[in-house]
Design a protein around this nucleic acid. Structure first.
Lengths: 64, 64
DNA sequence: TGTAAATGTCAAGTTTTGTTTACATTTTAT
DNA sequence: ATAAAATGTAAACAAAACTTGACATTTACA
């Protein structure tokens, strides 16, 4: 599962740590998701999408 | 996290078992999600949304 | 150039998601 | 009324998401 979080952060000038705080997970979790190490839970995906005012599908792309 | 899976199944006349087969999880997993016992993983949410030709947000509603 | 902030990564542990098996209850149709 | 299909539920387990803590590497900029 790919995602555009890194780009969205860059657009908004937000660090991994700041994003982590705002969606209430650890910085390592954001890092791992960005690097594709694992997928966020559905509730976390919702939080991230809401933060960027985007649909989940606009941030995460299923790849199979 | 609420969802409209039961209604969507009814509309399409699909059983839990049939839906489970098509998204490649167990029937009990579909049942548990419908009953709100837990949330699906993000990849599973994508599969379900794709099956019904809907956005994830049109099926699952975050309630915090 | 140096140093602070940001990012990457790893290991060990907890929590949540999902499976399997098995059985009970409800619904549907004959 | 009965049989079959569909749904509900529970326990024990496996797998994936997430945490904490620690340290190494990269980036930005005074």
């Amino acid at each position: 599962m790919k995602n555009r979080i890194k780009v969205l952060r860059a657009e908004q000038n937000i660090t991994q740590a700041q994003l982590a705080n705002r969606v209430e997970v650890s910085r390592q979790t954001i890092n791992a998701i960005e690097k594709g190490k694992f997928d966020p839970s559905l509730p976390l995906a919702f939080k991230i999408a809401r933060l960027f005012n985007l649909k989940i599908e606009d941030i995460f792309q299923d790849e199979e």
